[in-house]
Structures are given as structure tokens and as C-alpha cells.
């Protein structure tokens, strides 16, 4: 049975047989799913050039079982032109999604956030710092959606409000714990100022310190979920 076209993005493609592709889609209604695109690499295939990451698509598929067959895909809306460092950031988003989401686990909220983040990143008027802040906010939404939301406005033990002028230690399974004394050297990387935490809570990462802290916090929060395998797209940023 043919279903209606659904909004989706291609996260990744890999070659399959001579002229086909296995495509990982991030769909609005079904989350991540893998489809096979028969003949998509043939010179005259209408899907050539369309099945690329970061293009807003409408697609439909059919089939029984886990691996569905892609029946058609077209670009929906203005395609994004991503270049340079922005493109690498977008690869990072895709790697996060592929690593952290389960197949057929829908996250419409995350899908919207992904779409908006891509739109924001491709806009050349936004500064590099703004774009970086936007990546942190996407990570925040991602953690929320997969059930690891950070409680950024409450102290974990007492439940009292986070105060801008106190320091807090992040502990992955508990949350943010008040750190009264000065932390020792090896503990320092787990400690954050209340100001940065509240900034991230309110999604207002305008100041450079808050931005740096947000990055450190997100890395610590994501690390146990990502496991031992390093994020390959992060390596691409270390240049020169």
C-alpha cells in the first residue's frame, strides 16, 4: 500500500549493489529508518542528487519488514547550501542522531529542532559563535528527547533553585550538585558556574564563557551515551 509523502532528511547513504543505495532517513513520524533506493545511482535516476544529506525532502516508501523500499523522493522547500565549517557541524549533528537514536523511534520535536538548526546554520549572517550556541541547544533538545534531560535549574539533592553565583558539580546520573569548596584540579572539569547553567537553561548562550561551559557540559553529558568510539566528525575540526 502506498502511503502519503513524509517529511524527512537523509542522514547517510552507502552504496548497495551496483546502482542502489542504502539510505538512513530521519523522518518526522517514524524517527530514523533505513530504506533501499533501487537504481538511485544510475545516471538518469530522478533520485540522483536528491538523496543527499541536509536537504529537506518529501519521500514515500513501501514494503514489509525492517528494510523498506524507497519509492520516490523530492526536495521540499529551499535546499540548504552548506559550506565549509558549517558543513562539518552538520555532519556532527547527523553523527549524533545516528549514534543516539533507535530505528523507528519517532521524535517529531527533535525533527523540528534539527530542521531549524540546519536552517540557522546555513544562514551566512549568523556568526560562528551563534552557530556554536545553536549546536549546544540542539544537543540539549536531543538529550531531552532521548530521556536524559539535564535539570539545569535545580540542585539535585535539595531541589532548590540553581543560583548564578554558586558553583555546581555535574555528575552524570545524579545531576548538578552544589560545590561549596574550591574543587581539586582533576575535579575542576566537572564543575560549572550557576551563571552558565542558567544561561543554557534559558537557551541564551551569548557570552563566551557560558558558551565554553555549555560545550564542556554537553561533552560530559553525551560521553557516557556515546560510549568508547570517538565522534569522527569532531576530528575534522582539528585542523592546522
Amino acid at each position: 500500500m502506498m502511503q502519503a509523502m513524509q517529511a524527512c532528511f537523509v542522514l547517510h547513504t552507502r552504496d548497495y549493489r551496483d546502482s542502489s543505495l542504502l539510505v538512513d532517513l530521519f523522518t518526522c513520524d517514524q524517527g530514523i529508518m533505513r530504506v533501499i533506493a533501487n537504481g538511485a545511482k544510475r545516471p538518469r535516476s530522478p533520485m540522483r542528487g536528491v538523496l543527499q544529506p541536509f536537504l529537506p525532502l518529501l519521500a514515500h516508501w513501501s514494503g514489509k519488514g525492517e528494510l523498506q523500499t524507497l519509492r520516490g523522493a523530492e526536495i521540499h522547500g529551499t535546499p540548504y547550501y552548506l559550506q565549509g565549517a558549517t558543513l562539518l557541524s552538520c555532519f556532527y549533528l547527523n553523527e549524533l542522531l545516528v549514534r543516539l537514536l533507535h530505528h523507528y523511534d519517532p521524535h517529531p520535536g527533535l525533527f523540528r529542532a534539527y530542521h531549524q538548526t540546519l536552517a540557522f546554520l546555513q544562514n551566512k549572517q549568523h556568526s560562528a559563535a551563534d552557530k556554536e550556541g545553536r549546536l549546544r541547544l540542539f544537543e540539549k533538545v536531543l538529550l531531552q528527547e532521548i530521556g536524559y534531560a539535564l535539570q539545569l535549574d535545580q540542585e539535585a539533592h535539595s531541589g532548590s533553585a540553581i543560583l548564578a553565583d554558586c558553583n555546581y558539580r555535574f555528575s552524570p546520573e545524579i545531576g548538578l550538585v552544589l560545590q561549596a569548596q574550591r574543587p581539586s584540579q582533576d575535579l575542576a572539569r566537572w564543575v560549572f558556574s550557576g551563571k552558565s547553567l542558567l544561561a543554557l537553561h534559558q537557551s541564551e548562550l551569548d557570552d563566551a564563557d557560558c558558551l565554553r561551559d555549555a560545550k564542556r557540559l554537553m561533552r560530559l553529558a553525551l560521553a557516557p551515551l556515546l560510549g568508547d568510539k570517538p565522534m569522527r566528525s569532531r576530528e575534522l575540526f582539528v585542523v592546522g
Binding site: 558543513l87 562539518l88 555532519f91 592546522g240
Partner: peptide
């Protein structure tokens, strides 16, 4: 002309900037 090709081109450009 794929996003991977674009990323590769960008990386090489950055790498040999000096």
C-alpha cells in the same frame, strides 16, 4: 559534488592554508 566531497575540499583547503 556530494556533501562528502564538499567537506573533503574544505578540509584540504584549511589544511594547506599556510
Amino acid at each position: 559534488t556530494t556533501v562528502e566531497g564538499e567537506a573533503t575540499a574544505h578540509y584540504i583547503t584549511e589544511m594547506i592554508k599556510g
